[in-house]
Every structure is written in C-alpha cells, then in structure tokens.
Design a protein around this nucleic acid. Sequence first.
DNA 1: TTCTTATATCTAGATTTATAGATGTGTTCT
DNA 2: AGAACACATCTATAAATCTAGATATAAGAA
Lengths: 100, 100
Amino acid sequence: MEIIDINKALANQTRLNILKWLKDPEANFRPHEDLGHFNDGVCVFHITERAGLSQSTISTYLIQMQKASLIIPTRHGKWTYYKRNEAVIAEYIKALNNQL
Amino acid sequence: MEIIDINKALANQTRLNILKWLKDPEANFRPHEDLGHFNDGVCVFHITERAGLSQSTISTYLIQMQKASLIIPTRHGKWTYYKRNEAVIAEYIKALNNQL
DNA sequence: TTCTTATATCTAGATTTATAGATGTGTTCT
DNA sequence: AGAACACATCTATAAATCTAGATATAAGAA
C-alpha cells in the first residue's frame, strides 16, 4: 500500500466522491438492469452518469484508483464493475492513525 | 477543514515527512540554539536542512500546509517556527474514519 | 545606518494532472 | 459477419504542481 498514491487519488473531489458513493451503491446508483445486484460493485457507465464527467475521464480515474489499490475491477461480459477494496482502505486509515 | 486541501498537502512525500518529523522534534532536528525548546515547533531553516530541498521550496510547502490548517506558524524575532495543528489533524483522521 | 540572517514572495521552466474527443478492443446481438 | 455497446487507451490542450534562483522584507548585529 502506497500512502502517497492513495493521497494523490483522494486529492480530487470526484475521485473522493466515487469512493464514498461505492460505500452504498443502492443509495447512489440506479439498479443494474442485467445483474440485479451490486455484489461486484458498480459499472463504469453508472459511475460516469453520476459523476457528470466524460467516459474517458472516469475510466482514467477508476484505473488510477485501482492502481492505488483503492478499488477492485471485475469483468462481466462487456461490463466492468468496480467495488471498494475495504481491506486496503482500512489499512490506509490505520496507517494514518499510527503515522500521522 | 477542507479534506481535499489536506489530501493535496499530504500527496507529496516531503510534506508528509515534515508533518511526521514535527511529531517528535527532539528526535528529528538539532536543538534551537537561541530558543532551547520546541514549544512552538521547528524553525524553517532546520526543516529545510532536514528535507534537503531549497529554502524557497520548503517555505512554499509550509505555507501550503498552513493554508490546509495542518500546521501553525509562530514568529519569534526573525525566525518562524511551525508546529503541528493537532486539533485539525485529529479532526481529519476522524472525518476519514467516518466518511471514507 | 549598513550588513547579515531568516523567511516570504516572485519568476520561470519542467513535469504532472484534469479533462475530453477520437480511436481501439473485446463482447453481445442480429 | 456486421452493427452496437461498454470500456480502455491514445492524443491533445489547459491548468496545476514541483522546484529553484532571484529578489523583497523584516529583524537583529555591527
């Protein structure tokens, strides 16, 4: 876990929002039509829709967040779902508690 | 307290180090010749020395961290001392615990 | 007052980030 | 196979950040 990479990822309002939204998909996104659940997170299309930025920007953001280990992608056919990496997020907060 | 501003301030290894160093000035800096204590933190010169970057860069960093409310400056004659703003740092960690 | 010292601010070039349009890749549908 | 779809990647531009040298400011020293 690279604290600096995580801090960079969270130094942007949209990316911070995405991480928060993914905490409660039911409250923040409309249901997935094909899948009917959020077990693997939320698909890029819905996140793009919610954030109000272009598809390429959101895709870039999500990949950056994934490289920082904050989220985990799962491919289902033509959709990619992203969910929170709770273990790393907890580790990150713990590290801040100890080191900061 | 602006979380994004704090995250930006902490998205740089040197600035993160400075905040950590200020947690234990005795361990991380040589004594202040004139003052003999670290009650108001550490002077810019010593921080510059420790960080190994230019004076103007460190001054800029410190002011950025101060604008994010992470540190507090105190002027004593021609020296400026910076100390941690423990209240804001605690508030920040608490906010991450609750919101992240 | 002049010189030195500590820090802040200004200026500038190199690098990184923000953001979107265009294009590529893999998947599904017909 | 061909069209449509979801997403990733490429390209490009504007804005922000990194960093240092030069300069300004303010305080102490001579």
